Simulated assay, not measured.
Amino acid sequence: MDIKVLKYFVESARKNSISKAANELNLTQPTLSRQLKDLEFELGYKLFCIINILLILILTIN
């Protein structure tokens, strides 16, 4: 496991977007996606679930 791939994972999680993280890391989106898939395979766990629609629940306290 390479430390740079862990940094890629952290940036992707921070940005909530592989495309935005790739831009920030000066990588192409396919390259970052492949690195993250390889990390998932190495760890044996799925790290991300990609959902097209973001549902935000807002709770208000009265």
Rank of each mutant, 00 (worst) to 15 (best):
Y8Q: 13
I51F: 07
L54T: 12
A13R: 09
D38A: 12
L43C: 02
K15R: 14
Q35W: 04
L54F: 06
N23D: 14
L32P: 02
L27H: 01
K46R: 13
T60M: 08
L39N: 01
L59Y: 11
K37P: 00
L59F: 13
R14L: 15
A21N: 05
Q29D: 07
E42S: 08
L43F: 05
A21T: 03
N23A: 14
E40C: 02
L6E: 11
I53T: 13
C49M: 05
E40T: 04
D2Y: 06
L25R: 01
L39H: 00
T28N: 06
L57C: 06
R34Q: 09
N16L: 12
N23V: 07
L27C: 03
L36F: 04
E42R: 09
N62V: 10
A22C: 04
S17Q: 06
L6P: 00
L59S: 09
L47C: 03
V5D: 08
F41G: 04
D38F: 01
V5H: 06
E40P: 01
A13D: 02
G44N: 04
Q35T: 00
K4N: 12
I56G: 02
K37T: 07
A22Y: 04
L6H: 07
E24Q: 08
L39P: 00
L59V: 08
N52R: 11
M1R: 10
A13V: 12
E24F: 05
I3S: 14
I53N: 11
F41H: 10
K15N: 12
R14H: 09
F9M: 14
L6D: 06
E11P: 00
P30L: 01
G44D: 05
F41D: 14
K4H: 11
F41S: 14
V5N: 05
K20D: 15
T60I: 11
K46T: 13
L27D: 04
K15M: 14
A13K: 10
L27N: 01
L36V: 00
L43H: 01
D38T: 08
T28V: 04
K7I: 13
